[in-house]
């Protein structure tokens, strides 16, 4: 296994933290998809979002990333509206990451070039990042023919390469074999230890325990619990969280 390394050079942009959400509300066809009173992502560590399918985890993360506008309420990045061009130190791996129709290396170079890295430096940094993720041997392969695990690793590598202060990960290990999952978790842990603030959606409670400093439990668009990992698993406050931890299906 490859030892994850610290990624990338940081471009000089404004600090993004804290990221706050106020009275977010999203409704579609009469159904409430998101109803979040307040949430602040600041400090250090890794926050893990859990909850049944369709709870609104991805939607919350997308709204906080500035990809979707809420029907009402607002998201602030360091007290300003989300603006990816002004806050360069932000990264996200989507639930279904899109890899460009280019080589593996070119995918990483692209992200680096997008934040202003020079061409020559981008190449060197991309190779360094790929090496850390165990993907260097595949650098010249087409990104679109990788295996599922390799694709997820590449998407994560690409997001890490620019050295973000804040990283959103939407189910980065879903449908991966145990070895691939371990690789990715190691990369996440290492980044977190290096001081990167991480918000991760986990489809698997064991992963939430392994990676999370705190847990946010969502159900039907609402944040039902927000607690340190030990307390969430040891003494869940709400009946929904209890049922969820016990493996009962929630609707």
């Amino acid at each position: 296994m490859h030892e994850p390394v610290r990624f990338g050079q940081q471009t000089a942009t404004k600090p993004i933290l804290p990221v706050t959400a106020e009275r977010l509300f999203v409704r579609r066809k009469g159904r409430v998809l998101l109803d979040v009173e307040a949430l602040t992502i600041g400090g250090r560590g890794t926050t893990v979002l859990v909850g049944p399918n369709g709870a609104g985890k991805s939607l919350l993360l997308n709204v906080m990333a500035g990809l979707r506008a809420p029907d009402s309420g607002r998201v602030l990045w360091n007290a300003e509206p989300p603006n990816r061009q002004r806050y360069g130190r932000f990264g996200m791996v989507l639930q279904r990451p899109v890899l460009l129709r280019r080589s593996v290396r070119a995918n990483v170079e692209y992200a680096l070039r997008a934040v202003g890295t020079s061409a020559g430096q981008a190449r060197a940094e991309a190779d360094r990042a790929l090496e850390g993720a165990g993907l260097l041997a595949l650098a010249n392969a087409s990104a679109r023919v990788l295996s599922g695990g390799e694709m997820q690793r590449l998407a994560l590598t690409r997001a890490l390469a620019t050295g973000p202060d804040l990283l959103f990960l939407d189910e980065p290990t879903s449908s991966l074999d145990p070895a691939s999952m371990q690789t990715i978790e190691a990369m996440v842990k290492s980044a977190s230890e290096d001081g990167m603030r991480i918000v991760l959606i986990a489809h698997d409670l064991a992963q939430a325990r392994r990676l999370g400093d705190e847990i946010i439990f969502m159900h039907r668009g609402k944040i039902v619990e927000h607690a340190p990992t030990d307390r969430f698993f040891g003494a869940p406050a709400s009946p929904e969280a209890k049922d969820f931890i016990a493996g009962k299906i929630l609707i």
């Binding site: 500035g66 061009q85 932000f90 996200m92 989507l94 899109v98 692209y110 997008a114 934040v115």
Partner: peptide
């Protein structure tokens, strides 16, 4: 397919 991903790269609309 690409919109969100390209937004995340922090690119302007022309790029």
């Amino acid at each position: 397919e690409y919109r969100d991903q390209l937004m995340l790269f922090g690119l302007g609309s022309l790029a």
